[in-house]
């Protein structure tokens, strides 16, 4: 996994709430058996009409918006657990998603792929939208170490939360598999204890 420390870039606004992973990557594109190529179909049915022509009004197609940060409405990534959604966002070039709320599974999937979900207050999200819509060239800066997101020109900033363990993983580019495998011994011990636990508990209560 790539390391993530800080980022300063322009952002693309997506002023829609409850964006579900079916919109991020529709089910008909889930037939691949590798992780490549999902970027092309990111937000497919919003980006393109049914003849495959780009919808110019959609912010991802709007040339005035650029950058590797996506700023989206409340409750982003709800619905299906498909990690393809995180792969598609990454493949398209996003490194950070900002929203006032993330669905649990999406958030985990994003973190497991080095895509940083930054949860901000509703007020801050509104200021972000406003700033980007007013001036598409305005930049945002994200500092993972200090857990801070800022609109540099405007003197506006906010702290964001991230699980300390996940933060270490992001900063160092580690993933969970390495860690879990290093715990094999403890896991095997647990399996033995679990058998005893079930035996005891069932016999103790068995009348």
């Amino acid at each position: 996994m790539e390391k993530f420390i800080t980022l300063k870039d322009t952002a693309i606004p997506l002023v829609i709430e409850n964006i579900d992973t079916d919109q991020i990557i529709p089910a008909r594109f889930l037939k691949s058996t590798d992780k490549e190529g999902f970027g092309e179909n990111l937000f497919r049915d919003w980006r393109f009409d049914k003849n495959g022509n780009p919808n110019e009004e959609f912010s991802l197609n709007d040339k005035k918006y650029t950058g590797s940060i996506l700023v989206a409405g409340d409750n982003f990534g709800c619905g299906s657990s498909r990690e393809h959604a995180a792969w598609a966002l990454k493949a398209f070039g996003f490194k950070v998603i900002v929203s006032s709320y993330f669905a649990d599974i999406f958030k985990g999937n994003a973190l497991n792929n080095g895509l940083l979900p930054v949860q901000v207050s509703k007020e801050f999200l509104d200021s972000l939208f406003q700033s980007i819509l007013e001036n598409p060239k305005s930049e945002l800066s994200i500092d993972l170490g200090n857990q801070k997101i800022e609109i540099p020109g405007k003197n506006l900033s906010e702290k964001f939360e991230i699980d300390p363990y996940k933060k270490t993983c992001m900063i160092n580019g580690y993933d969970d598999i390495d860690f879990l495998i290093s715990r094999k011994k403890a896991i095997k011990n647990f399996e033995e204890k679990q058998l005893e636990f079930l035996k005891e508990h069932s016999e103790e209560n068995f009348v």
Partner: peptide, 9 residues
């Protein structure tokens, strides 16, 4: 439900 990275874990 879990994501594919977690399936691998």
């Amino acid at each position: 439900g879990i994501g594919t990275s977690q399936v691998a874990q």
